[in-house]
Amino acid sequence: MLDNPEKTTRLLAALKAAAPFDVELAPSLIEYLQAQNVADADRMHHVVWDLSYAGDEGGIICHLSRSE
């Protein structure tokens, strides 16, 4: 869907309208973040407070809150 600019714009707008919302990180992502010494990487549950679009190659980026 991200290769369709019109659908991408609508999807991003819908996600931004839903923010903030809770997400659960996959165990493999948590392991990667811990290996990179990212703060709060030990928590599975986070809150998405904003979103950005980084183009076709970057996709949709979720901005997570640092603490609950």
Rank of each mutant, 00 (worst) to 15 (best):
V47N: 01
S52N: 09
D50C: 07
D22S: 15
M1Q: 05
D50V: 12
L11D: 04
D22G: 06
M1G: 08
L2S: 02
A17I: 14
S52A: 10
L11Y: 12
D50N: 14
Q36D: 02
G55E: 05
I61P: 03
E68H: 08
A39G: 01
E57P: 00
V48I: 15
L64P: 03
V38D: 02
S28Q: 06
L25F: 11
C62H: 10
D22C: 08
K16G: 05
V38F: 12
W49I: 14
S67Y: 12
S67F: 12
V47S: 06
E6F: 12
L11S: 07
V38S: 04
S67E: 13
V23I: 15
D50F: 14
T9R: 12
G55I: 07
N4D: 15
K16C: 01
R10E: 13
D56T: 13
D50S: 13
A41Y: 09
D50E: 14
V47A: 02
A14G: 02
A19P: 02
A17G: 14
P5N: 03
V48T: 15
L11E: 11
I61Q: 11
E6D: 14
G55R: 06
P5V: 02
D22H: 14
L11V: 10
S28T: 06
Y32R: 03
V38E: 05
P20N: 13
A39Q: 02
R43L: 08
K16F: 03
M44V: 14
N37W: 04
I30W: 00
S67G: 11
L29D: 01
R43Y: 15
T8H: 05
A39V: 07
A54K: 04
T8K: 08
H45Q: 09
I61F: 05
L29N: 01
E68R: 08
G55C: 05
G59R: 04
A17E: 15
W49G: 05
R10Y: 11
A41S: 14
K16L: 04
H63D: 12
T8C: 05
A41F: 11
P20I: 13
D42S: 11
P20T: 10
C62L: 14
L12V: 10
D22E: 14
L29Y: 04
E31Y: 00
H45Y: 09
A19R: 02
V47L: 06
A13C: 00
A18H: 12
C62Y: 14
S28F: 09
V38T: 15
L51P: 02
G59Q: 06
A19C: 15
M44Y: 13
T9Q: 11
L25V: 09
L64C: 09
E68N: 09
L25H: 10
H63E: 10
L12K: 01
W49N: 12
D3V: 04
K16Y: 02
V23D: 06
Q36V: 04
V47M: 04
L33M: 11
T8G: 04
G55M: 06
L29W: 04
Q34H: 10
A35M: 03
S52P: 00
G55Q: 10
N37H: 10
D40R: 13
G58W: 08
R43M: 05
Q34Y: 10
K16T: 11
T8P: 01
A54V: 01
G58L: 01
S65W: 11
D56C: 01
Q34I: 07
M1V: 13
L29A: 01
A35T: 07
